[in-house]
């Protein structure tokens, strides 16, 4: 089974801010032997963990617009130009 990582051996080092948005600043996990009473249960109820409805109607291609495009071209076409339309369709529009 393939095991994944987000870096190549020859790639430049990943900027620290991107390394672990999930783990950075998170409290350490409680060891298993102190979780035997609730081993099968989430720490808080699942209702609280559900995503909230999207209130601000941001266009789905906002990230493409807001970021400096990468210097990547495919068949001489800038990558961002190729992605713009598919991104706009991501939210079903």
């Amino acid at each position: 089974m393939p095991h994944e990582s987000d870096a190549t051996s020859s790639a430049p080092p990943v900027p620290p801010a991107e390394r672990d948005p999930v783990g950075d600043g998170a409290a350490p996990d409680v060891p298993f032997d102190r979780r035997t009473a609730d081993f099968y249960s989430p720490g808080v109820s699942l209702s609280r963990l559900r995503p909230r409805p999207d209130v601000a109607a941001a266009p789905a291609d906002l990230l493409l617009r807001a970021l400096e495009p990468p210097p990547v071209k495919v068949r001489h076409i800038p990558l961002v130009d190729l992605l713009r339309k598919p991104y706009r369709e991501l939210n079903g529009e």
């Binding site: 987000d6 870096a7 190549t8 020859s10 790639a11 430049p12 990943v14 900027p15 801010a17 991107e18 990230l63 970021l67 400096e68 495009p69 990468p70 210097p71 990547v72």
Partner: peptide, 16 residues
């Protein structure tokens, strides 16, 4: 691969 992943990684990092 190094050139492409470097460009894409930098792009992603700039989101932060």
């Amino acid at each position: 691969a190094a050139a492409l992943s470097g460009a894409l990684d930098g792009w992603s990092a700039s989101a932060h």
